[in-house]
Write a protein that binds this DNA or RNA. Structure first.
Ligand SMILES: [Mn+2]
Ligand SMILES: [Mn+2]
Ligand SMILES: [Zn+2]
Ligand SMILES: [Zn+2]
Lengths: 155, 155
DNA sequence: AGGTTAAATGAGAACGATTATCATTAGCAT
DNA sequence: ATGCTAATGATAATCGTTCTCATTTAACCT
């Protein structure tokens, strides 16, 4: 999926500051990975997606480093990790606005949504069960009807 | 967690019929695993939970068979597989009523709920995005305040 | 700018959950 | 009971991810 990464290189100084603010040294691998997350066409990337984007740029970064850095970014609040079905985690930049996801089980397309009523009802349900809410993951699996979905149900 | 399995053996003939109806031969491993799923105190069990329950009964069933049978049960619609966080899948008997889950991130307790408003809103959101809904997974992570939660927030 | 040092990296081993392989065993239709 | 086929169990393999450790590097201090 090489073409998915648009190399419109972000401002290196800004990204460096972003890392420092998060308490992380501005190393080359971290800057490159942050750059990819910020400029890729796909908002939700697996560790392998990121690694391949690095390869496509001719960058020499180890796979272990990709995992390490993504985990550090998560701990620092720079990215969110999702466990959609399929065995591998996907990461996206934290943009400060909670949202949930619809995943097309055919083509893998990911759509985001936010529904205040759903959010409110979750709080109500949890409270009624005597829990203190912490986090939640709502993933809807479906078939998209996008014209370019290669597995589209009908024409 | 041996004590979690109540060996009030279910009706073997019934369970045998249940398997046949699902298109599965009534083999000993399958009968035993179905029995454990039906009579365990915990409604949501990992493959390892099931395997340990078998060991506690002195049954000789291979780990690979446990995985295989659980996957077959899922394909046959007898059980549902959930991918809560934590790396391993959990299974529960299909009881014909969709529900979602609250998981205590401290003690692992699992609570079930069903909320019609949430279900309806999901359909609406999905439709508005041009998807055909297929399935969904809503897991709320929280801290339970049950008196017997060993990690309870306060006294 | 050059030196120091603790932290970060990369290659590969290790890991945990799950699946595949394959020789042996066991349902079950005849 | 016999035979055929599917199921089992021991073990190897796989997959995504994390760990180990020798080497490199960013940040700090002359
Ligand atoms: Mn998202
Ligand atoms: Mn349940
Ligand atoms: Zn939400
Ligand atoms: Zn639901």
């Amino acid at each position: 999926m090489a073409w998915l990464y648009r190399p419109r290189r972000g401002d290196a100084a800004l990204e460096s500051t972003e890392l420092k603010k998060a308490g992380l040294k501005a190393t080359l691998p971290r800057l490159k990975i942050l750059d990819i997350l910020e400029n890729s066409n796909q908002r939700h990337m697996s560790a392998e997606d990121v690694y391949k984007a690095l390869l496509d740029l001719g960058e020499e970064v180890g796979f272990a480093t990709v995992y390490r850095v993504l985990t550090q970014f998560e701990a620092a609040g720079l990215v969110i990790r999702h466990n959609f079905e399929g065995g591998h985690a996907v990461f996206e930049l934290e943009r400060g606005h909670h949202h949930d996801h619809i995943v097309c089980v055919q083509c893998g397309r990911v759509e985001e949504f936010y529904d205040q009523i759903i959010e409110d009802r979750q709080r109500a349900v949890v409270a009624s069960k005597g829990y203190e809410i912490n986090d939640h993951a709502l993933v809807i699996y479906g078939n998209c009807t996008k014209i370019d979905c290669p597995y589209r149900s009908r024409g």
